[in-house]
Amino acid sequence: MGILSIIFIVAGLFFLIVAAIGVIRFPDVYSRSHAVSLTDSLGAFLMLVGIALHEGLSINMLKILVVLILLYILNPVIAHATVRAALRSGLKPWQKGDS
């Protein structure tokens, strides 16, 4: 159980690091929001599942799963709101030919 949770946490940490690199490297708002969504969906999932495995079957594990479900419902809403605000205020998306 301990080894499995360590594997999950390390995998989640890997995705979080990749997402942070993406947030720094990508050229505009829209593509950066993809990187943030990568964090939310897979990185947070793996981290929290690893932690829940470490915690074992109890009320705390259920609470961690509640946090996970909340993240899965709320974070797409936030990303969508950000991108829609950017689009409506007239920010042009980055194209391939731009510098």
Partner: peptide, 20 residues
């Protein structure tokens, strides 16, 4: 909007950090 996205990412990290 970049700042807003960064804020969002920070708060997600803060949630995970709190549980750890």
């Amino acid at each position: 909007f970049d700042r807003l996205l960064g804020h969002n990412g920070i708060s997600t990290k803060a949630i995970i950090l709190l549980i750890v």
